[in-house]
Simulated scan of single mutants.
Amino acid sequence: MQINVYLAGQIHDDWRDTFRAHAVEIGLAVNFLAPMEVHERSDNVGEDILGVQPNPVMKDEVASMMNNLRTRVLVEKADVVIAYFDTSQYRQWNTAMDAGIAIGMGKPLILVRDATKHHALKEISNRAQVTVETPEQALQALQYIFE
Rank of each mutant, 00 (worst) to 15 (best):
E40L: 13
R41I: 05
R41M: 04
R41F: 07
N44P: 01
V45Q: 00
D48K: 07
D48P: 05
D48Y: 01
I49M: 14
V52W: 00
P54F: 08
M58Y: 06
K59G: 08
K59F: 07
A63T: 06
M65C: 15
M65K: 14
N67L: 13
N68S: 15
R70D: 08
V75Q: 00
K77A: 10
A78M: 02
D79L: 00
V80L: 05
V81Y: 04
I82R: 07
D86N: 02
S88W: 04
Y90C: 07
Q92N: 03
W93M: 12
N94E: 13
T95L: 00
D98C: 06
G100Q: 05
G100T: 03
I101T: 05
G104D: 01
G104M: 04
M105S: 12
G106W: 04
K107H: 11
P108I: 01
P108A: 10
I110V: 12
V112N: 01
A115P: 06
A115T: 14
A115G: 10
K117C: 03
K117E: 04
A120N: 07
L121C: 06
K122H: 12
I124R: 06
A128N: 02
A128Y: 09
T131I: 07
V132K: 04
E133T: 10
Q137G: 02
I145P: 03
